[in-house]
Design a protein around this nucleic acid. Sequence first.
DNA 1: CACAGCTCCGCTCATATGAGCAGACAGGTT
DNA 2: AACCTGTCTGCTCATATGAGCGGAGCTGTG
Lengths: 317, 317
Amino acid sequence: MEPIAGGPAQLVLTASIARRYYVDGRSKVEIADEFRLSRFKVARLLDQARSSGLVRIEISHPGNVDLDLSARLQEAFGLRRAIVVDTPEDEPAALRLQLGKAAAELLTEIVTADDVLGLAWARAVTAMTDQLTSLARVPVVQLTGALSRPDVEANSVELVRHTARLSGGPAYLFYAPLVVPDATTARALRQQPEVAEAIGHFDAVTKAVVGLGSWDAGQSTLYDAMDTDACEQLRKRGVVADISGVFVDAKGAPVQSKVTERVIAINAEQMNAIDEVIAIPYGLGKVEAVRAAVRSGLVNGIVTHSPLARALLDEVP
Amino acid sequence: MEPIAGGPAQLVLTASIARRYYVDGRSKVEIADEFRLSRFKVARLLDQARSSGLVRIEISHPGNVDLDLSARLQEAFGLRRAIVVDTPEDEPAALRLQLGKAAAELLTEIVTADDVLGLAWARAVTAMTDQLTSLARVPVVQLTGALSRPDVEANSVELVRHTARLSGGPAYLFYAPLVVPDATTARALRQQPEVAEAIGHFDAVTKAVVGLGSWDAGQSTLYDAMDTDACEQLRKRGVVADISGVFVDAKGAPVQSKVTERVIAINAEQMNAIDEVIAIPYGLGKVEAVRAAVRSGLVNGIVTHSPLARALLDEVP
DNA sequence: CACAGCTCCGCTCATATGAGCAGACAGGTT
DNA sequence: AACCTGTCTGCTCATATGAGCGGAGCTGTG
């Protein structure tokens, strides 16, 4: 990367050749011909030009998606999809808007008529569906119960219904909370016709968008909605992230517990069977949660913002 | 140049491929293999990436030589050499120092033991020789008489002697002014043994560094040293530049005149026979002079600074 | 002077690549 | 349905390219 060439004339020659090759797109043979050099010499000068840093290649584009970072994130974690939005915004609501837009575009692009779409409840997912403008005609399946929080008006049901309407496909939705006080109630709820029908479609889902929370106060809607005992119990079991009701530890292994039975949502096995599972995490507090979710293999698509992406890649400066 | 790709996933894919290709240097076949695409698809995505501006290729390097500009200048004017120094400096003396350094490096690089070096008198040439630290063993021939100006202590003779000493080769130098009041005196001077000997070596010169002035007050040392009548006469004949005593018009044609006979210097024909003739112009006032000098074919190497280079290329912004 | 060690050059030959073509498909139009 | 029309795909085949080799020239050293 360092050994820079000899004299200035040499450098200018190299620069000329580099431009002919990279900018004008001429072949090395043509260049060799023009400069009265052997094509080998030209090739060597070009190698030198690149290795010495004389020719710099940048990947960027006008939009607010950092393609280079996206590609690197995708590769580094073996993801099917990664979209990194480069925005100075750090106010959560505005950020969600941006990420929602990007995720909506992604969904529009990757969902085809052969898919079955699963949607979990999460603010970020709502942000996405709010920005959705077109979608192939697919069935839309509700993957989790809803948590109604005072600060969020939309609920899981609206989210699914809205998307299905936009798509033109059938909706499989139900009215139930994400978490209930005991396993018995949960079992009873799962017996309900609408719930049972939706659950029955889980196996058919090919693409899903889920919520992703870090198992800490304020970092997971589910955590905040659950009783302290349950939260603590899960933490002791090593849970660092919840993926729309599926708990995973730092190694990415799903954690089974009594609490799991109280959750009305897709389970780890079912989620694992889905071809593409996309999450939309943001905020530096979710670094470990994202790592865990990705390690688990349950989540293989990420839409996020550049600070979190950089943190994930350990490029913290 | 404009049609950017479709969806964000597509973009990220393209970015990934672009990085594999341009940054990691993988072959398209390998990439196609890795991404489960045909090599044609990969090639098309890469074409698209380049034409849409997603991949940007820059040519630059740490030094203060603007290689890209140099290469473009060289090509645009069909020059053998072009070195453009990118410096914020615009104070003439400091600028001369920078250009002198660049020119000295160039000379060191391109002069080989087979060459015969010719040096004209000019402040810029002195600036170069002052920065010269090593040179192949070559004869050094004085190409012009000296103009002694009160503000410049070095004269043509010192310049040649110093260079020859550094090189280790013989010096052919003489003591005579560049311009004398009448042709008779000039003829007499040319008969002098040292002068005649130097002139006798003009035909052997293979590389030369000359001065280049715009035919205006303050833009040419020769102009300033000459009587007003002669200056005016030459201007009427269309002279726009003097190349160390050779006058050329805007078309680059050498202008013969009575004044020419009063100059003790290499003539147009002899200069034309020299393989490489390098000038070191600076200052935006010399744009037309440089054009004329280059058009004449007498000067085929330029060492200059970026503002003048840009002006020459009509990139004035 | 001979020689090892070095760099630089251009060759061969297997491989990568581009130009241009024809089939497959989608969406609209008669 | 039949028919354009444009887009996208992967093919063939000629050409461009890279890896590795041996020879030429240069330099310092015994």
